[in-house]
Amino acid sequence: MINVHSYESMGTFDGPGLRLVVFLQGCPFRCLYCANPDTIDIKGGTPTPPEEILQMAISQKAFFGKKGGITFSGGEPTLQAEALIPLFRDLKANGIHTCLDSNGGIWNEKVEELLGLTDLVLLDIKEFNPERHRALTGRGNEQTLRTAAWLEEHARPFWLRYVLVPGYSDFEEDIRSLGKHLGDFKNIQRVEILPYHRLGVHKYEAMDLEYQLKEVKENTPEQLLRAEQLFKEYFENVIVN
């Protein structure tokens, strides 16, 4: 069984083309700006047979075109790597392109096997400075950077995703350090700068949780342009999403 939180059909933000997005339950990170706090607890969600997800993807395959496919997001999908491995094999056998949206913070032999089966990884790097990363997510970023290195070493294509949070992850020195660390990687196909937003605030209220970044305002166009210019000094294909 795979523990599913929800689905999005015809998604356009989580990988190339039109995609079926499967949001899985459970995440070890505690990002202060998390837009899906209801996905964090591993005990939530709906246990779902992998065959059900496979059939859903096959039924939507005609809409995917040449670029689209299925994306597993969350939460953190690598928490359920063992259950996903046979499903990814079946998806590949049916010619369906697979994406995995991951923070890269979990590593074991099952995660390694799953990444080896994935057509495209969307790797979320929250901050390069380890102390600021821990303040933002509650966890270190050492494994995320090791995951990036593994993807490069094994010639696995990936997109780098970076949420620009004013006062938390928009420091020029940290973006430059990230660029120097990863800028020579050949397998980063794209860098996506994701503007900070407050779309999940109502979920915190509904769950009777405090949203800790309520004083943080959304990015100005100037902040986004500056970040884009910085990233473009190190990476060829930079998109503000």
Rank of each mutant, 00 (worst) to 15 (best):
L160M: 12
Y33W: 15
K217W: 05
D208N: 14
L136E: 03
H202I: 01
S9C: 04
T137H: 02
P28I: 11
F23H: 03
G45A: 11
I125G: 14
P195L: 04
V21R: 01
L54P: 09
K110W: 12
F72I: 12
F13S: 09
K92T: 00
K180G: 14
A57W: 12
P221G: 14
R161N: 04
V21C: 01
D41I: 01
F13N: 03
P77K: 02
Y234N: 13
S59P: 03
C99K: 00
H197P: 04
K180R: 15
I175Q: 09
T12A: 09
M207Q: 04
F64L: 01
F13L: 13
E222G: 03
L136V: 05
G200A: 05
V240I: 11
E153C: 07
G179Y: 10
P195D: 01
Q143K: 08
A57M: 12
E172R: 14
I70R: 00
S169Q: 05
L199V: 09
P50F: 12
M10R: 05
V201F: 13
D90Y: 02
R132D: 10
I125V: 15
E82C: 08
L182H: 11
L120D: 09
S59G: 10
Y7N: 08
K43Q: 15
R132V: 04
G17V: 07
V111Y: 14
R19C: 11
S73R: 07
M207L: 10
Q25T: 09
T39D: 11
R161H: 02
T147W: 14
G116F: 09
V240N: 03
G68Q: 01
A155G: 00
G167Y: 05
R161C: 04
P195R: 00
E205M: 03
N241L: 07
Y196H: 06
R132I: 05
F231L: 10
D184L: 12
V22K: 03
R30W: 06
Q229L: 14
L115H: 07
G45M: 10
Q80T: 13
Q143E: 15
D41K: 03
D174F: 04
P37M: 08
D174L: 04
T12K: 03
C31P: 01
N94T: 01
V238Y: 12
N36G: 03
G45N: 05
R198L: 07
V191I: 11
E210P: 04
G104I: 13
P221T: 14
R161A: 05
K217P: 02
C27G: 08
P221V: 14
N36M: 04
P49T: 00
R139D: 10
G15E: 07
G183T: 10
F235M: 13
L24R: 03
